[in-house]
Simulated assay, not measured.
Amino acid sequence: MQKVFLFAVLFIGVNIIQAQLKVGDIAPDFKLTNTDYQKVALSDYNDQEGVIVVFTCNHCPYAKFYEERINLLHKTYAPQKFPVVAINPNDSVKYATDGFSHMVKKGYKFPYLLDNEGVYKAYGATKTPHVFLLNNTGKGFEIAYIGAIDDSPQEASQVQVKYLEDAISSVKAGKAAQPAITKAIGCSIKPFQ
């Protein structure tokens, strides 16, 4: 009985791992509602060199710590054809401040999309914030980097390694990001049921 249970747990665990995107995979398209009430799709960015997809929310302290850094990333990299697209996967029934009206109040200069369709599952996002750097290969958006924005989730002034910015520099130079994966630090996603 114990062997059967252990096998079932391992089988389920392997399937969950396999369902997550890996570096080198083609990112699935999405079409979600932005805070300006318009639909935004990944395919809308086919004229860009890449996209910085950030799964984030309003209520999580870590997401709040990163708000200004995410704004700065967009301001810096959108002109270089690597804009930010933020996606909120959290259920606003559980966390009212993650509701659409609160998303609108953020006033971000980049799309902030409501994920009521489970896009976070297709990407394998588990935290807020959780970053996926996409590189436009001309045949689709390839995952170039997955993980954290930098090495200091709480204090921007203490950042020593800017993982995402280093990854963007590598991609722009035609190289693989090193590291290509880091551990995302943040609150667990509270998805729509």
Score class of each variant (00 low, 15 high):
Leu6Ile: 09
Ala8Lys: 01
Ser101Met: 10
Phe132Ser: 05
Leu32His: 14
Lys105Glu: 15
Gly107Cys: 06
Val104Lys: 09
Val4Ser: 05
Asp98Cys: 03
Gln178Ser: 14
Glu165Thr: 11
Ala63Val: 04
Ile189Ser: 12
Asp25Ser: 12
Pro179His: 11
Pro191Lys: 09
Val40Asp: 08
Tyr45Phe: 15
Tyr62Ile: 07
Tyr112Pro: 04
Leu133Thr: 01
Gly99Leu: 04
Leu73Asp: 03
Asn34Tyr: 10
Leu42Phe: 03
Ala173Gln: 11
His102Ile: 02
Gln48Arg: 12
Phe11Cys: 14
Gln20Arg: 12
Ile149Pro: 00
Asp166Cys: 00
Ile12Asp: 01
Ile181Lys: 14
Gln154Thr: 10
Pro153Val: 05
Lys162Val: 02
Phe30Gln: 12
Glu49Asp: 15
Ser169Thr: 12
Val23Thr: 02
Pro61Thr: 07
Gly13Ser: 15
Cys187Ala: 09
Tyr112Cys: 03
Ser152His: 04
Ser101Asn: 13
Asn88Phe: 02
Ile189Gln: 07
Asp115Pro: 02
Val23Lys: 01
Ala167Lys: 01
Asp47Gly: 13
Val84Gln: 07
Val54Trp: 01
Phe82Leu: 11
Gly118Arg: 06
Asp166Val: 01
Asp29Phe: 10
Ala96Pro: 14
Asn135Thr: 02
Gln193Ile: 09
Val4Arg: 10
Leu114Asn: 06
Gly107Leu: 04
Asp98His: 02
Val131Phe: 08
Val40Gly: 07
Asn71Gly: 06
Lys106Glu: 12
Thr35Trp: 10
Phe5Trp: 04
Val9Ala: 13
Thr97His: 13
